[in-house]
């Protein structure tokens, strides 16, 4: 899932390379059998996808904590907000009684989209390890991923 930059091909490609010689191309069964036969391979895959998914989840969670968690803090720090009015309603009631919910739903939709993309990229990677199947737009999601993450696997 390093997806990644043009410089230096992702390390994982090298790990999965032998499977390209398998006759008949990719199949879920073959890929899965590989995972089964090579626990080490499965472990590398799992660690990569866990890291991606965790980064995504923590990112959305951080945004949630800042946005929602910031509301009481804002009221505490700026007393004027406690009695501010908008369209004839008190601001705190609008935020906590109404606006919070669309924000939550939007965050959920965003997360599901990206989480599914991470998984799709991963399956694509299994399917054809030689070429990079991810479209540029999708790659952007993981573009910031540093390469050194893979090296860390050896120590674990």
């Amino acid at each position: 899932m390093t997806g990644g930059g043009q410089p230096a091909p992702p390390r994982r490609v090298a790990v999965t390379a032998p499977r390209r010689k398998r006759a008949g191309g990719w199949s879920a069964r073959a890929a899965a059998a590989d995972l089964h036969a090579q626990p080490r391979l499965a472990q590398v895959y799992a660690r990569a996808i866990i890291r991606d998914q965790l980064r995504l989840a923590l990112g959305v969670l951080a945004a949630l904590v800042v946005v929602l968690g910031g509301v009481p803090a804002a009221f505490a720090l700026v007393p004027a907000l406690r009695t501010a009015e908008l369209l004839g309603f008190r601001l705190p009631w609008i935020i906590l009684g109404f606006v919070a919910y669309p924000v939550l739903v939007a965050a959920a939709v965003l997360h599901v989209r990206h989480a599914e993309r991470v998984e799709r990229d991963f399956t694509d990677l299994l399917r054809s390890p030689a070429e990079d199947p991810t479209a540029p737009a999708e790659r952007a999601v993981h573009a910031e991923r540093p390469e050194q993450g893979v090296d860390g696997e050896e120590s674990g």
């Binding site: 879920a28 995972l35 626990p39 499965a42 895959y45 799992a46 660690r47 866990i50 991963f122």
Partner: peptide, 17 residues
């Protein structure tokens, strides 16, 4: 590893293994 692979990899990959 076994548990982690099952929890985090998509089903179409792990179902067979």
């Amino acid at each position: 590893d076994r548990v982690m692979v099952r929890m985090h990899l998509p089903e179409e990959v792990t179902a067979q293994a």
